[in-house]
């Protein structure tokens, strides 16, 4: 190591440390980028962007019972049961939110926008079984698609907010609603 090299080493160290310290000091004079979630979020600070793929919700009144979502889901977390017979009823619509990876493939497959993402992302519960979300309380008639209908200006999060609200409740075993079939057919459940 030559002597000039020796001096250059000292000079480089001093200069680069000096510059680095100027950079870090300049950041002391700036506003932090982080926010105090959840208690000090500024007004108008958009936490979740439009189009965020959060927890799924189903507007059962729009569901046609076509099972497209169930077939598309790569990991099979959607369970839709439709009763057989002349008059079809949707008797079960479950989504296992614990397994769902929010890929959004089901929402793209759905013809009526019945299944869609909300902006909800914080919904921790104390019992993992509560994360199986049941969207059907009583059998519903499938939606008849209208031709050239534009999707409703739906209010995403309507259903999920209820679920999030109820998460403190005790877990109760879910019973799929059975259907009274007018023409004497059987529900899936009765068959088993």
């Amino acid at each position: 190591m030559s002597f000039t090299n020796y001096l250059a080493n000292i000079r480089n160290s001093v200069v680069s440390i000096f510059e680095g310290m100027a950079v870090t000091f300049s950041w002391m004079l700036r506003r932090p980028h982080t926010v105090q979630y959840p208690d000090k979020v500024d007004k108008g600070h958009e936490l979740i962007k439009e189009g965020f793929r959060g927890i799924l919700e189903v507007d059962v009144s729009l569901c046609t019972g076509c099972l497209a979502c169930q077939r598309t889901c790569p990991i099979g977390v959607i369970l839709v049961e439709v009763s057989k017979g002349t008059e079809r009823y949707i008797t079960r619509f479950d989504i296992d939110a614990a397994k769902c990876m929010y890929c959004g493939l089901c929402t793209e497959a759905c013809p009526t926008n019945a299944i869609r993402h909300t902006k909800e992302f914080a919904y921790s519960v104390d019992d993992i079984r509560k994360l199986v979300l049941h969207y059907i309380k009583e059998p519903v008639k499938p939606y008849k698609p209208v031709k050239d209908a534009t999707p409703d200006n739906f209010n995403a999060g309507r259903f999920v907010s209820e679920i999030v609200k109820n998460r403190e409740k005790e877990y109760v075993e879910y019973e799929a609603p059975s259907v009274k079939i007018p023409d004497g057919g059987q529900t899936e459940k009765e068959k088993n």
């Binding site: 000096f18 100027a22 950079v23 000091f25 700036r30 932090p32 105090q36």
Partner: peptide
Amino acid sequence: YFGYRVYFNIKYFPDKTYLRWMI
């Protein structure tokens, strides 16, 4: 000179200065 470099850094980056220490 150090003060100048700090000033330069502040001017060079588009983030605004914010002199309140408590947040």
